[in-house]
Simulated scan of single mutants.
Amino acid sequence: MAVGLHQFVLLAGGGVVPPWMIGGHAHLGVLSILAIVMGFAVPALGVTGTVRTAVTGLFVAGQWGIPGIVWLGEGFGLTFLMPTGFLWGGALIVSMLIMLYYSATGAGDAAGGGSASFAPGDD
């Protein structure tokens, strides 16, 4: 949100938002929303132990690495860091593939697909 507000200040002051800032902001926004979903999905699917640590670590690295490398590489002129985008993107892909596996092989009621554990009221 802070990046979005900064972009608003630039525009309101008659300036122009650099394209690298727009791309980084978009990635950070979408990946932050996906992080919220992952926060619910990991425990709902019963991902525990080392696998949970791997899923979380890989996702967080990718979530911050993708926009971070855009800002560092393009915004601050550190273009030699740009190839590490493949590392951050790969971390996201591996994290999501692990979650796909748990989704496909988990119990049918793991994500709330089973019957309710309470009796409905007699209204």
Rank of each mutant, 00 (worst) to 15 (best):
R52D: 03
P120G: 06
G108T: 07
G49I: 00
V94C: 04
Y101A: 08
A26Q: 12
G89R: 03
A91S: 13
G85T: 10
F59C: 08
V94I: 12
F76P: 10
T53V: 14
G24T: 00
M99K: 04
A107T: 07
D109Y: 00
M99G: 04
T79S: 07
V42S: 00
T56P: 03
T48P: 02
A61M: 12
A116S: 12
T84W: 15
A116N: 10
T105R: 14
V60A: 13
S117T: 12
Q63F: 06
M96D: 09
V51C: 02
P43Q: 08
G113P: 13
T84D: 11
T53Y: 07
G73C: 03
P83S: 08
G121C: 09
V60E: 09
A91F: 07
G68K: 12
S115N: 11
G114T: 00
V30S: 09
V42H: 01
A54P: 08
T84N: 14
A54R: 07
V47N: 01
A54I: 12
A91Q: 04
W88C: 12
A116E: 11
G114Y: 00
M96W: 09
L28G: 07
I36G: 04
L87Q: 02
W20G: 01
Q63N: 11
S117Q: 14
G68L: 07
M21T: 08
G24H: 06
A119I: 13
G77L: 09
V51D: 01
L28P: 05
D123F: 11
G46Y: 02
G112W: 00
H27F: 15
G85R: 13
T79G: 11
F40L: 15
G73V: 03
A110F: 00
G46T: 00
L81T: 05
A104V: 05
